[in-house]
Write a protein that binds this DNA or RNA. Structure first.
Length: 113
DNA sequence: GTATTGACTTCAT
DNA sequence: AATGAAGCCAATA
C-alpha cells in the first residue's frame, strides 16, 4: 500500500487545472510536503500506470519536462500537453504563460486538509 | 542499523 | 546558456 504522503501527492496533482502546469516542488508544497520534490516524482512513477492522473502537467521548476528530450515519455508528455493547448517547445513550457498560480480557496476546496 | 537512489531545486561557477 | 555541487528526505536495499 502507498503511504499517506504518496496519496496526498496524487490528490494534489489532480487539482492542477487543465491547460496549466506546476513544478514538482510546487506540488510538494501544496501537498503539505515542502522540500519533497523528489518524492513527488516517485509518487508519479508509482501512479503512472493504471491511474488517471494528469502527471504530464508536472514539470521541473525551470519549465523543462522531467524526461530527456526525444525520449518516448517526453514525446508522449508533449503530446498530452498540446492536447490541452499548452505549448511545448524544445522540451519546455513557458511557465510565464502556463504556470499554475493557485489561490488558497482553490486548494482548500479540493484538498480538504 | 547504515547506504544508496531519485520524473527535484537552488546556488555557484 | 550549460554544468556541477550541495541540499533535500522518503523509500529501497
Amino acid at each position: 500500500m502507498p503511504s499517506e504522503k504518496i496519496i496526498r501527492i496524487w490528490k494534489t496533482v489532480t487539482v492542477i487545472p487543465k491547460g496549466k502546469v506546476a513544478s514538482y516542488g510546487q506540488i510538494a508544497d501544496l501537498a503539505g510536503l515542502p522540500g519533497r520534490a523528489r518524492l513527488v516524482g516517485k509518487a508519479l512513477g508509482l501512479a503512472s500506470k493504471e491511474m488517471k492522473l494528469p502527471w504530464y502537467r508536472v514539470l521541473r521548476s525551470s519549465g523543462q519536462l522531467a524526461f530527456e528530450k526525444g525520449s518516448l515519455q517526453a514525446e508522449k508528455q508533449k503530446g498530452l500537453l498540446q492536447q490541452e493547448e499548452v505549448v511545448v517547445l524544445n522540451n519546455r513550457v513557458k511557465l510565464k504563460d502556463f504556470g499554475w498560480q493557485p489561490d488558497l480557496a482553490e486548494i482548500l476546496s479540493k484538498l480538504k486538509y
